[in-house]
Amino acid sequence: MFRRQIPLALCFIMGVTMMIHFFIKHPFVQSDMLNEASNFATVIGLFAMFLGIYSLTRVHWMKIRHRRSDWFFSYLLFAALLNMAILGNLIGTGADTPFQWFYDAFMVPLQSTTFSLLSFYMASASYRAFRAKNFEATVLLIAAIIVMFGRVDVGPWLLPDTSVGNIPVPGVNELSNWLLFVPNNAASRGIFLGIGLGSIATAFKMILGIERTYLG
């Protein structure tokens, strides 16, 4: 019976608690109640971390057990997980520790490399997929070229602000800034207002128990 009522009640209480501190300036609401609510978030966050580790371990253990594709890499994951947890907890995570060495030698280059691969995919995609097939696509393409050109040093150097007679002609940097601060800004603001209004509506529906899909 209480499988639905208790989560709904908790959602209502916490939702209202986090909302009213914007409107009530009483010290109890501003300090004690807010701190207590924040502590709840910290505790829930820690539980979520343990749940994440459990889930990750289970998925990779099953992968090894059933010899699914690339199962060997799951052993690497366990080795890395245990290594960092043991080093961090026993010796510490500060500068000049083995934890820091593993972080600098593995984590930093691996993550940086993965992210930098994007430039290769973008170059390939720009060659094969970015087409001026219709008017809208052509506008988008021209805008993208101007912004890309204006956001690097070589752009303003090749196409600086100039003038023809008394008429000033904006350079690529000026044009790029105009595109970012005027049309892009107008569109972004509209999207943000839509997201904001949608979020408020969804939050109210959840707090009031109308939206219950999160209960599963």
């Binding site: 094969r128 970015f130 070229i145 050109f149 070589v154």
Partner: peptide, 20 residues
């Protein structure tokens, strides 16, 4: 990094033009 960034942007612009 701006030298590499400039070259990458120029190359992507060039690839878009050539592709089109």
């Amino acid at each position: 990094a701006m030298g590499s960034q400039s070259a990458a942007h120029l190359l992507i612009i060039l690839l878009i033009i050539v592709g089109n």
